[in-house]
Amino acid sequence: MKKRLLSLIMIVLLLVLLLPAAFAADNVASESAEDFPYVLDKAGLLRDSVREALEETARSYSEAHHCKLYIVTLDDHTEFNYDVYEAAKGIFLHYDLGYGETREGVLLLLSMNERDYALIGHGVQGEAVCGYESSWLIEDAFLDNFRNNDWRGGFADYLDACDRQLTRLEDGEDISEGANIIVGDDGLEYHSYNQPGVKEKNWLVRMLTTIFAPLIAAFGTCATFKAQMKPPKEARHADAYLVPRSMDLRVKQDLFINRTETRTLIESDSGSRSSGGGGSSFHSGGGFSGRSGKF
């Protein structure tokens, strides 16, 4: 009897836990798995014309490589899962996305509330292009755009990067080539060191730092030494001769005049985390591989 009661409670609990996820997943798209669009903009980031253009590009690349490339934007991924990567996996599995029997596909999920993203790949090709180095190369292409709220550019770069990596994979090239992953002290991996132009810029910054930082430090030290020579100066104040507690403040007036209010759009935190890239972490297992982080 007790066993039956326990089983019943477990079933009820399971239903309670699974039902919201199921309802939430249904909230993503009312379409069936076959009709699931390549670009699903629930956060409303894209104009219709832009979304349609991206949809067409994604369709074209997907058909060319037999690997579907998806874009999903949400206001808040925590409706599905507190982890954005798991949320992306949940959407992929719930709608049975992907191409063919092995469900070949790549999905990029943007969650706007906390500016989170996840890039996942499923299937042979999907997992390959979302492998450790290759996923880093793909996200390297779009992160800068998203950080600057350039949604159209970011999605276009994502699709182009997937197309590029899938082509290299099909041609038997090394799809990890070009990745120069920098691991920060926080364990996250950072971008911007292998982007064309950025590397040169970085070296310029290093060179200028090497030249000017020592000059400034040396000048500051010598200026301090010179200040030690203490040339005589005429006094400007008479603080030492102020009679203690002699101040008689006969008027102390503080009149409120008016109030003004200014609003400033908050920059994302990721913008300040490194010299140009947000941190991300790599995941693999369970038939998926990919990355997640903040933009």
Partner: peptide
């Protein structure tokens, strides 16, 4: 998504005397 800065403007006046010695 916004940081709202509220600025109150005041007209302030201070008047008084201070004694100095030597």
């Amino acid at each position: 998504k916004y940081r709202v800065t509220v600025t109150d403007h005041f007209s302030v006046r201070r008047a008084g005397t201070l004694d100095f010695s030597r």
